[in-house]
Simulated scan of single mutants.
Amino acid sequence: MLSLPQQVHPNAPNGIHPKHVRQVVGLAFMGVIAAWEEFLERTLVRYVAGATADSGYTATPKFGRAQDIAHAYELLSQDPNYDPLKHYLKVSDARWVWRTADFFFAHHHYGLLTSKADLLTNANRIRNRVAHDSDKCKADFKTAAVWFLQPVNGQLTRGYSPGELLLATATRNFGNQINAANVSHFEAYMRMFESLANGIVP
């Protein structure tokens, strides 16, 4: 989107309005969060069922393995009638993921999420604001944006959007290497998710 010509004046010959660029970036981020949560769910379920990564790694169970994927869902949900078409695991809650892994496994890599808990919580706040226009989502997004930007007096410009935050340069909260890389919050999140995924499935 950023490589496309942008224009504000409706009579300009070519280009996309910056507002639409920000909307597309927000929607792309929403898709990324959905894919991240799907990754967490699928890996957790498969480790409970005894799956092994290509590297040979597997989480070490405390109590034994599930019989299959369906049984793993029943164990993780604590519902013998679990139906993945009607229910879902709480993988949007990073703490639920690592605490559940703590219960099932003597050794696992989901503890990597603990040091990123605030970033993961704020990713959900950004995603929710893209998806919803409720007062709660607006308030939560403001909390996230203020946490990232640290504006004077905690105030954002009127109408500040998720796309604007995602395109702004990340200067704090992601760790020294990413903070110094002069990349956007969107790119910083992509690097964080890639690092976490490579740790969970080494």
Rank of each mutant, 00 (worst) to 15 (best):
Q6N: 11
D83F: 08
V97I: 06
R99M: 14
Y189T: 03
V201H: 15
Y110P: 02
W36E: 06
L149H: 04
M1A: 12
T169H: 09
L76T: 00
E164A: 13
G15S: 12
K138C: 03
G56V: 13
A139N: 13
V201C: 14
R65C: 07
S92N: 15
L120Y: 02
A168I: 11
V130G: 02
L75D: 01
A34Q: 14
A181S: 12
V32S: 06
G175P: 00
G111R: 10
V91I: 02
K142Y: 02
C137V: 12
E164N: 10
K138W: 01
H17C: 07
L75C: 13
N182L: 09
R22K: 15
R22V: 01
P202T: 12
S55M: 15
A117T: 10
Q7F: 12
E187G: 08
M192V: 12
R127S: 07
F29L: 07
T43A: 14
V97F: 00
L2P: 08
A197W: 00
R129F: 09
L165F: 01
P162D: 06
N173K: 15
Q78A: 12
E74A: 10
M190C: 14
F193A: 00
A168Q: 08
V183T: 11
P61N: 02
N179K: 13
V183I: 12
L120V: 08
H17F: 07
D118Q: 13
M1N: 06
N173F: 10
V91R: 01
D54E: 12
H20A: 07
L75E: 05
G56Q: 06
Y160Q: 09
P18Q: 02
D68Y: 04
D83K: 05
H20T: 02
D68G: 04
K142I: 02
T171K: 13
H132G: 06
N153R: 13
D93W: 04
M30C: 10
G31E: 03
P5Q: 05
A28M: 11
D135M: 13
R95M: 08
F104L: 10
W147F: 03
A51R: 13
K62Y: 13
W147H: 00
A131M: 03
L149S: 03
T114L: 05
Y189W: 02
A188R: 00
G175W: 01
L165E: 07
D102I: 00
S55C: 09
P18D: 04
L120I: 03
Q155M: 08
E164K: 12
Q23M: 07
